[in-house]
Amino acid sequence: MFRRLSRWAAALPLALVLAGAAGCGSSDPAASAGASAGGTTTVTVFAAASLTGTFTELGKAFETANPGTTVRFNFGSSATLAQQITQGAPADVFAAASPATMKTVTDASLAAAPTTFVRNKLVIAVPTDNPAKVDELKDLTDPKVKVALCAEQVPCGAAAVKALDAAGLTVKPVTLEQDVKATLTKVELGEVDAALVYKTDVIASGGKVQGITFPEADKAINDYPIATLAKAPAGDLAKRFVDLVLSQQGKDVLTKAGFEAP
């Protein structure tokens, strides 16, 4: 009896997985069908991971200002999001962390005329006790200082290379992380002595790391473009969300988080 029970118990996770997969499969078509039927009440926004805090706040403001609407977010690496959009993901708005990733989408004629809405600057992030006594960019070239950078394939890595080139410095990092949050985590845990991340990430970490500004960062400013997508299921509502981001209210939320006006 017990053996039979345990056999069923073993099958349970599989059943749950299948049920979960079936649930995922059915929810998306239903959502897009609702939108195309005229009841355009949901705006789906694909946004760079670094916008998580600010856009969530703006999404709530949008829902309050437009009763009955819902804003759904898909936050992630801009490059991944761009690929999801070109592969046909049902999105209304795309906010990218770099012009290059936005270009993937505009090149596929899936969006037109993106607007730069904010800019983000790199800073040196160090653990709160700053064990390697880093206070300028040149200190990162010291072989005793363990440095983490973003991989060159992601926007923060490209910006880091640009800033170091502008300063004429060569840094030997111990790791090239897959995104800016992973880079920041290495600093938070004290595994590295310094990293180049965005100013907004340091502010969002809430004091777990210390940010040091450096003049060469001005040479590697990252522009964030936003655009409504050509096939936006939400139509006009998508444009209204972009308008909110570009409005004074949007600017206030974004600058408070450390972004700079374009």
Binding site: A151, P173, T175, L176, E177, Q178, A182
Partner: peptide, 13 residues
């Protein structure tokens, strides 16, 4: 691997 050992070509990639 990427979390613990990081990512560097030839060493941990």
């Amino acid at each position: 691997t990427i979390t613990f050992a990081g990512n560097f070509p030839g060493r941990t990639q």
